[in-house]
Amino acid sequence: MSNHINLEKRRQAIYGWLMLSPAALMLSIFAFYPSGATFFSSLFSKHTRRRPSEFIGIENYNDLFADPTFWLVVKNNLFYAAITIPVSVIIALSMALWANSKIPARGFVRTAYFTPTVLPMIAAANLWLFFYTPGLGVLDQIGSLFGLPSVNWLGQPETALWAIIFVTIWKEAGFFMIFYLAALQTIPEDYKEAADIEGTSRWTYTRRIVLPLLMPTTLFILVNAMINSVKLIDHLFILTKGGPSDASKLILYYIWEMAFAFFDAPHAAAMTILILLVLCIVAAIQFIYLDRRTHYQ
């Protein structure tokens, strides 16, 4: 009797799987399979001519935890993330609020802020390399006008990571601003007018109305900023190569070094798995915690 209902259900299921399959296929090939393969290879020892690779369980992980450079790189990366994420998000938000208001040359301001994002990263890093060069660089030239001593920004452990952080903020803030700007434009003018009639100050309006309405964007940006903070590598190639004495080495650069400079693929794989794990946990926390406090329109 309910035959046609079953048929319809099956038809819907097939339809659903068909819709799902392109994304599932792409993700499997380029994300799920590599992750699994990486995990698999992280459980084996390094293959050399004299000793073939063999299963060693979590030995590679234990090595990493005993490696002081690994901990230094983790510390560097946490510090790097802790500074770049909040600062670039706050700058992006303030710039977006400003560029969204009725100011002269609005188009110019928006373009100017977005330029760092458009520049190829290698080119931008070279530009900053020139800024930071001791003696010749723009920063030193300006400093010398005021009689400040020459500083080798990239060449000393105390300032190298800060120099990298600064470049990242310069680049990320403009990129995130575009998202904020787009979100701000979906907020109807009416809200401001309704608030005006009640005598709401600009600050109260921003805090009570604009910021909550921007929460979905903020969440998106936070997740992106976090992922970016472990993804940074191109700057390092140009600017510091992780030095001096690993002071500006970040996790992805260390993985690259491990895999392609030291040719130690299993340890690189183990490190990759650790990062994936941490990223998954942090993203889950962000989504679960912030989602509950976020209003989606």
Partner: peptide
């Protein structure tokens, strides 16, 4: 006080 065409209710 004012009533807007779109009502301008704060959605959150």
């Amino acid at each position: 006080s004012m009533v807007f065409q779109s009502y301008a209710l704060f959605p959150h």
